[in-house]
Every structure is written in C-alpha cells, then in structure tokens.
Amino acid sequence: MKCVAALSFWRGIAVALAVAMFSLSSASEYEYLSWKSDVFNSGRIYDKPPQCVDIPDDLKLCHNVGYYQMLLPNLLEHETMAEVKQQAGSWVPLVHKNCHPSTQVFLCSLFAPVCMERPIYPCRYLCESVRDACTPIMEAFGFPWPEMLTCDKFPVGDVCISTPNATEATSPAGFSPVCPPCDNEMKAETILDHMCASEFAIKAKVKEVKREQSDRKVVLQKRKKILKQSQSSFKKKDLKKLVLYLKNGADCPCQQLDNLGPTYLIMGRKVDKQYLLTGIHKWDKSSKEFKKTMKKLKTHKCPAFENVFK
C-alpha cells in the first residue's frame, strides 16, 4: 500500500497526495484511489462532471471536518447539494454518540469528499471498524447498517483513506457504557438531531420499568402529550397503551429510568411491531438549552431518514 508522510489528516492533503505518488517509504494516514476505479465505477453517467463546491455551513455532518471544499457529485452518487444535506443529516446523531473516533472522517470522505481532481476513498478496514463499533448503537435506535455503505465495496489493496485509530473498534475514545438513548447531551442542537431520528416525541412520566430478555420494557403513565408524530408511528388509540422498549438495554445504565418521579421528553420509533425508546430527557424548564429546544421544535426541519436506512 502506498504511503506518505504523516500530516494532519485533512489539512495539507494536496501535498500529501503529491508525496504519495513519488514516495513509498514513510508512514501515512492518506491513501489514494482514482475516480474511475473498477470497484466503484458503475457506469453511471452524470449530467455534470465532478466539480469543486464550498461545504455549506448547514451541512452539519462535515462543515467542521477540516477542509472547506468538496466534490459534487459525491462518492455516494448524490448530484445536488440538497440531496447531500438531506442524506448526510441522518448521520449527525451517530457522530454525537462517539461510537468510533473516525466516524466523521469515514462518512465525510463519502458524503463530502475533499476537492481534488480525483477523489480518495475510505479503506475497507476503516469502514469495517466504524461499522463494528457503531452498529450496536444504530440497532438501539432501530437502524440497520445501510446497504449503500457495505464495506466490501471499499478498497483493500489500493491506496485509500485510513487513520491511525481506524482499527479501534472496541472502547474508542469518548465511548460511554450508558444505554445510547439515555446518553444524550442537554444541548438544543443535539436534542433536535435525536428528535429527528425519532418518529414521535411525547411529554410523559414513566409508570414502571421491567426487564424483558435482553431489553427493558418501559411502561408510561396514561397522561401524555404528543410533541411530534409521523403518520406511520401510532394511532391516537394506541397512545393510551403505549409501551416502549430499550433495545438491548437490560444491563446498561440509564439514570432516567432509575427515577420514575420526573416528567420526561421521550422519543421513539416503531420498528416491526415494537416501539423503541430512542431518547429520554428530563423535562427541565430551568434549563436554557431545553427551553431553546422547545422553542425551535415548531420550525425545525428534519432530514429524511427513511431514504437512507433501507
């Protein structure tokens, strides 16, 4: 595998690529794969050739990744910035979870590839490492690892993007043992991102919590207020008997479910015939961030998750 001198991962990448073409001797975080790769060239003809465009501030997944321009169409065949933002937005909550230190690098190398004449692709082992570390968290929210990111489509022997910590799939920096739906920052932006990942959000109290095999069954009190609801989530008659499940959450800590007194902001999704708990926050009127969240909720626009996680 071709290597270049170690530099800051994204800054100076043009220099790194130039070195990669002439040197095989030093260690690297960079690797290079041509635009017309046999692995990725599906024969698709784009309306426009790839071009450099600025990464917009509202492309939250990648606007702070360390470079400022990207190729469009990107490596996932998104041809418009509107499509990129819609699809990339679905992954923001996963980056918040810090399930792997290279999650953002991996995703942005595809959604917003650094602007060069020819793009570089992520290495297969980088994909596998991120997938293995993050899939348990995704499953807790009822999302599978999507087919568009199947790791065997990415290169092994060719030059490709890697990072020093690409193989750290277990206990990566920042990883929390707390149940993923319970480990949410009390920041307006983060709460809204997680609310977007949910099909419904309600204001309610928890009546009781029971262990059910590897899950935790969460029974709510009858009085509930709907804050957000998609058409496919539940009918009004189902709300009275709504029971949520904390997927694979029988043994992981969830402080919110240890104290059944307070009122909570509870988020969830319907997966198969179960309603999964995807987020839970104390209904804290004294918190500025919580009040900001409630204020923004009415006008906040969410990405279309259903188009990504098929």
Rank of each mutant, 00 (worst) to 15 (best):
W91N: 11
V92K: 14
P93H: 05
P93S: 12
L94V: 15
L94G: 04
V95K: 08
V95A: 12
H96Q: 15
H96G: 04
H96P: 02
N98I: 00
N98Y: 11
N98H: 13
H100D: 11
P101V: 15
S102P: 05
S102G: 06
T103R: 11
Q104W: 03
F106T: 08
F106D: 06
F106R: 09
L107A: 09
L107V: 03
L107N: 12
C108G: 00
S109C: 10
S109E: 05
A112C: 03
A112F: 01
P113H: 05
P113M: 03
C115P: 07
M116I: 07
E117G: 11
E117Y: 11
R118W: 04
I120R: 12
C123F: 00
R124K: 13
R124W: 02
R124L: 07
Y125P: 06
Y125I: 03
Y125F: 08
C127I: 07
E128Y: 02
E128N: 00
E128Q: 11
S129M: 05
V130M: 01
V130K: 05
V130C: 04
R131W: 00
D132E: 15
A133T: 05
C134F: 03
C134Q: 01
P136N: 10
P136R: 05
P136C: 05
I137A: 14
I137Q: 13
I137S: 14
M138E: 08
M138R: 08
E139R: 14
E139G: 00
A140I: 02
F141T: 06
W145C: 06
M148F: 10
M148R: 12
L149Q: 05
L149G: 06
T150I: 12
C151Y: 01
C151M: 00
K153V: 09
K153W: 06
F154A: 10
F154G: 10
P155F: 01
P155D: 13
D158E: 15
C160I: 07
C160N: 00
C160V: 07
C160D: 09
I161K: 10
S162Y: 03
N165A: 06
A166D: 14
A169C: 10
P172G: 04
P177V: 06
P181H: 11
C182S: 08
N184T: 09
E185M: 06
E185K: 13
E185L: 13
A188F: 02
T190G: 08
L192Q: 02
M195Q: 09
M195I: 14
C196H: 09
C196N: 11
A197F: 01
S198Q: 03
S198Y: 04
F200H: 07
A201M: 11
I202K: 10
A204N: 02
V206H: 02
K207E: 14
K207Q: 15
E208N: 12
K210Q: 11
R211N: 14
Q213F: 12
Q213P: 00
Q213M: 13
S214E: 13
R216E: 00
R216V: 07
R216T: 12
K217S: 03
